[in-house]
Design a protein around this nucleic acid. Sequence first.
DNA 1: TGAAATGTTGGGGCG
DNA 2: ACGCCCCAACATTTC
Length: 479
Amino acid sequence: MAQFERGLMWFRRDLRIDDNAALSEALLQCEALFCVFIFDADILASLPPDDRRVSFIHDSVSGLAHDLQAAGGGLIVRHAAACKAIPELARLLKVDVVYAGRDYEPQACKRDDQVSSALQREGRSFVLCKDQVIFEKNELLNGENRPYRVFTPYKNAWLKALPAMIPSVVSALPLSRLVPVPAHVAQPCELEDMGFTRPDHPIVIAAGSRGAQALFVDFLLRLDAYHQSRDFPALKGPSYLSVHLRFGTISIRQLVREAFQSMAAGSAGAATWLSELIWRDFYFMILYHFPHVTETCFKPEYESISWESGPEADCCFEAWCTGKTGFPIVDAAMRQLNQTGYMHNRLRMIAASFLTKDLGIDWRRGERYFAMTLNDFDLAANNGGWQWAASTGCDAQPYFRIFNPVEQSRKFDAQGRFIRRYIPELAGLSDKDIHAPWLTPKKALKDAGIELGSTYPPPIVDHASARKVALARYGIIRN
DNA sequence: TGAAATGTTGGGGCG
DNA sequence: ACGCCCCAACATTTC
């Protein structure tokens, strides 16, 4: 027996029908269910017109609309401020309830509070369902009944609690309750209508849940080798599913189910990959319990660090952003980001370490740049990753653990294959020389057609001295 | 999910 | 054969 007569499913970061917690619940509780996606004008206003992510979302929304139509329903699409548009639409459609997947970002929580009160003022309900994560809020607490701050014990508790949390079978949904888009609410919502254009270099990953499933199937063939290949940016090691997880075109439960089963069957690759998925849950949890991390260091004492600022620092930051630091692995990483919107995880650590430790620039500036450029940008994971690298976060690497960009390059791109891909002007250097052109004999440079300072920049800092400066900068924490 | 600095050991060259 | 030195290789400590 359904609880409500008419309902509205509001899709946000869960652009799929399969294994969608809020949609499942809405279908079970409503006799008739409308569906909507809002291109939130409040968010879109700050994005450039050719933002890759907007066209990816647009494609994914089209796919979702198609899937809903095929099931006998439909997707209402709007370009508006969501906090107003949802209550208005609820009134127009005379629904009793609005369902959505819960969002843990502070701004989204605020928006959902507004939507909730606006709906309740008119006697409608607003139901948020856990969908983005496996464990949320207080579902995993430590012995003192407090949120975990260290990853390893969190992971152990997570793994122990998992079997009870994940349902192994998804029951069939009453899709016949889906309602098509009523003629009087249909509106055109093409990219151009919203002031956006298709980017010259769109996200290369296929959008929509169909794109996600194809990618997942392909990754499963490589899963067992994940732990061996994932750290080498020249290899096809990662799942590349992050952008799909970001927009919910694939379900985290589906991924975890697969990873857990393979791990139980003895796959070391699956165990390592599952650990990465747990990191994702961990950072969602941290953001939920400690929302101050969006503005300040998780560890308050790290706020007393004085970062480099002024024209010289601005110049260094610019060089970092554009991939002109003179450190090939860092520059290749940043050029991959700028050209594709993706950066390999190992390179994210190297680039973040370089900005904060070698250049002494505030992690928040790097975080903001990644937020603008990463296809898979997610506040919780991006903030967690940056604070980890900057040593300011919970369970961060100790501040004295400083990456040497040349050592990292030699270790993880030994043949320079990745560097050559993104810095073709260095391609002529030998495998040995390509990691540090400034140490290369003059003749070898000349033979490779390189002139430091004109074809490729000299190193922007001396790592050994930058390291000492960083230790002194962070040393203030000890006193 | 470091790397540098420092300490220790042992083989080999050499007088 | 022996002591001495050098230094690579490895281990431990430190940041």
